[in-house]
Design a protein around this nucleic acid. Structure first.
Lengths: 373, 373
DNA sequence: TTGTACGCGTTATCAA
DNA sequence: TTGATAACGCGTACAA
């Protein structure tokens, strides 16, 4: 169907005004406040009255309280904002954020809340322009920090997921900073690689800081970058560093298969190791997408995984087109994190105490780790 | 000054009530209406007064009009709903919807509008519970039709993208039904395949109707299914049918690489063709993701693309990990569609005439079509 | 150019 | 169990 047949809208100059509760009350012959109670069920209303009100509502075509008026009166808009790291497109290319947002949406819709998606923009004007009751911040980009400040100015309850950088901002009082212990999980994974006998290990990281462009790094460079910034990438690197010291590797620009492929090609060509060691026998990737890219690069180079090269990922997501369960990785409870983020805010809004479970990543032993050749 | 009778301190203990325009006006020594005009810039205000108001706002910590109150007063919430076909996760696994939503978000944020993401749910209670000024419906599932009805009841302006089924509902008056001519684009692609000399051609379709499970179909079955439902899949099938009659193939459950892989394996094993013909020399897939899956299946089977098998897709999106430009496909102007959908609603809300361009898909000759072996 | 007054539709409070 | 009433914060005629 092409755009040629666009009908003109009905909402033109002659639009009928939406029926109000007053109209229903008049029709039913009761007070407005009674009609309100009959609809919301918040007060004692005789069954007969309730039926009369419902019938009257039906007759006048009342569709429930106007959300704008209700939100004005109650001070609640039944909307929770989700601030993404960047554009919708880039945020949701990453299955991790996708699962989290999906879980948030699921929990919110159960209680009739809406989810306002807020792409990380340059200015935060939008944040104050539309009504929301609370916000969830995903990721830990510098952008997230400024957004958090703006939102806090509006006295909105805040929850972060993976906001490790935000957790270190003293002046931000958030309801919760959710996320698994990336460092411990990374260390666990690294120990598994070490236990298989590997010592020539390279790491493929997510962006370590803001202004870094993708490319190879030495152990010293990694240490410098890690000291300068706190991010998911530096956290995970630290965990691996507990097991393998002076770790070199490749920093990817983004968590994608394509970037993993690029990293894998560089590392397997030996170009990456500026410390002069040979081709790595194992690659520790900081995301599953990167790991799949590395595996593709290995296949391109005629290397078998895991016989010739061991590869591990991080996240435990299903990568489209890649066999589920093949990759050795750690699984984050992404759905649980999303549900908990939503739940924490709902509890906070209800004035209830926020009880949070502890989240931990679970090792998923796949089939991509073996002893070095 | 009114007595500040807080019914409940909402945001925990010690939450200061948000400063109001009245407070600013009092501080600046002007009337509330003057302060309002000074902020919105909608009326003539002396520069000195404006400065005084701004200074007063700064002093009392005023952060602009409360969006809830403003929305109540103006009847506009500055929020536009986007109704997805299903869960967030499944909708955004598809790069097509992702790009569209990204474009919508981009246009909306330019004008300070928010985007309320509404997952396709069982009941439409949520649709009336949160404030929005208009809505965009993506896709053409039966769910979209019921959602459209609910939204129309609320007198919300509606725009659909790829809502071919909605376009045929007589009682729905929408601002616009956007989308390319899927049928023509599919026919063009089919003609390209035919021109290369193929006659044993199989099609991999998106879900043709609601209750169909994935699997092989014959030409007769396809015709029956196409007659029963209108969807993007049947539209595209019709286009291909203009060139190749009695087309058999495989219906995928979803637009994913994994489903394409499954389809490809079935078709290349010859299991799929219940008409008894041999392995196809060309596969027409209804999405790029499916096409990439088919190509993977071909590689698995030791077939070279395009030498041994030609494959075409649909959409023109970048598939992570697959070389850009390699796939022969048609490119939909997805970004433009998203921008136009948002723009159409903004114009409608502003009472301006809605001018829509015509959208057409563009053939992208890649390197996956060659003469049959 | 500024101020006054009113009302948007709903819900919470209190009195009946 | 029901009814009357008062805000909620802002935008906007209209008057000054």
């Amino acid at each position: 169907m092409t755009s040629s047949d666009n009908e003109q809208s009905l909402a033109g100059p002659g639009a009928t005004p939406r029926p109000t509760l007053a109209a229903v009350a008049a029709e039913a012959g009761v007070a407005v406040s009674t009609a309100s109670l009959a609809f919301s069920g918040k007060g004692p209303v005789a069954e007969a009255t309730r039926a009369a009100v419902r019938a009257a509502a039906e007759r006048v075509g009342y569709r429930g309280p106007d959300p704008r008026a209700a939100s004005f009166r109650t001070g609640r808009s039944r909307v929770i904002g989700v601030v993404l790291e960047g554009a919708v497109q880039s945020a949701f290319r990453d299955p991790v954020q996708l699962i989290e947002v999906d879980a948030i949406a699921e929990r919110l819709s159960e209680v009739g809340y809406g989810m306002l998606l807020l792409p990380g923009a340059e200015d935060d004007a939008l944040l104050g322009g539309t009504a929301m009751d609370a916000a969830i911040l995903l990721g830990c980009s510098p952008r997230a920090v400024t957004a958090a400040r703006s939102l806090q100015q509006l006295s909105l309850p805040l929850v972060t997921i993976d906001g490790v950088a935000l957790a270190h901002e003293e002046d931000l009082a958030v309801v919760a900073n959710l996320g698994v212990d990336s460092r411990a999980a990374s260390a666990e994974l690294a120990r598994l690689v070490a236990a298989a006998g590997h010592s020539r290990v390279a790491m493929v990281t997510l962006p370590l800081g803001e202004d870094r462009s993708a490319g190879a790094f030495t152990g010293a460079e990694l240490a410098a970058m890690s000291a300068a910034t706190i991010s998911i990438a530096t956290e995970r690197a630290r965990g691996v560093g507990e097991v393998f010291s002076d770790l070199s590797g490749w920093m990817a620009a983004d968590s994608t298969i394509a970037d993993g492929l690029r990293a894998g090609r560089a590392l397997l060509a030996g170009r990456a190791d500026r410390a002069g060691r040979g081709r790595p026998t194992a690659v520790i990737a900081q995301s599953d997408l990167l790991a799949v890219g590395v595996i593709r690069a290995a296949e391109e180079a005629g290397l078998r995984v895991p016989e010739d090269l061991s590869v591990v990922g991080f996240d435990g997501v299903v990568v489209d087109g890649f066999p589920e369960g093949r990759l050795t990785t750690v699984r984050q409870p992404l759905r649980a994190l999303g549900l908990a983020a939503a739940q924490a805010l709902l509890a906070e809004l209800a004035g209830e105490p926020v009880a949070l479970p502890r989240f931990s990543a679970e090792l998923v032993p796949g089939h991509t780790v073996a002893p070095p050749p």
